[in-house]
Amino acid sequence: MSKAETTIEVRDLTKYYGDFQALRGISFDVHRGEIVGFLGPNGAGKSTTMKILTCYMAATTGTAKVMNIDVTTDSIAVRARIGYLPESVPLYDQMVVFDYLDHLAELRGVPSSKREAAVTHAVEVCGLGPVVAKKIDELSKGYRQRVGLAQALVHSPDVLILDEPTSGLDPNQIVDIRELIRSIGKEKTVLLSTHILQEIEVLCDRVILINGGTVVADGNFDELYAAYPAAERNLEKLFRLLTASTGAPKAVAPKAAAPADAGKYLPPESSAAPSTESSES
């Protein structure tokens, strides 16, 4: 693994939102061919780190490089190499699925001669065939999520950054999407965040666990379990051990630590907010 090309390089990132310090010096590397699970309680800084990597916002201090390009000095070049699925799936409801993907492929610089093939491929791998001619606002939650994923990979980027890619999907769809991510991860780099620990276990080569804006653990499963024997080779116990007991800053603790964690291990409830929509498909 150490020989592989470093595709994401993060050094000492800090981020302040006003007075609140969301990131307190985060550093990690990700290599080509790796699927890395980005794990941590709500408010730990996962999304913030992803937003910095995708050039949506700037870090207060520290550097981040993607494909060895700095996100602040040459942000356009970084953005051209990234596929990003934000936590709230960004869709134009009035557009037809195909047009939406075609539009994004165009904006992502896919040349017009290859665009149809690229869109068709994305439609195929994300299982969007049945809805490709439908308007996005007619789609079920699961399809919307997959359209979001399709736009992130339509230009076959070097680095895929996915913020909770399987939220709102049913178990079959989850298996399909995992399969897809796994196949992409063979040649590319995938950094994904999720609250479903089991997903990390089956999908990821490595885990980066953050809490309160710092990296509290980083390694493959064997390394982590060796370092924390108290976790008894159980990711859930490891998660609790490293994030629930200590160190959570005051601003995060009340809303994230205890109550949110309790529900997190029950997949149906973990997607509680969007589930109101999921019935009308």
Binding site: T54, I76, P90, L107
Partner: peptide, 14 residues
Amino acid sequence: RSKTLELLMTLPVT
């Protein structure tokens, strides 16, 4: 409002 700005701003577009 629809959060698509986050997408637009992370595309290789100024």
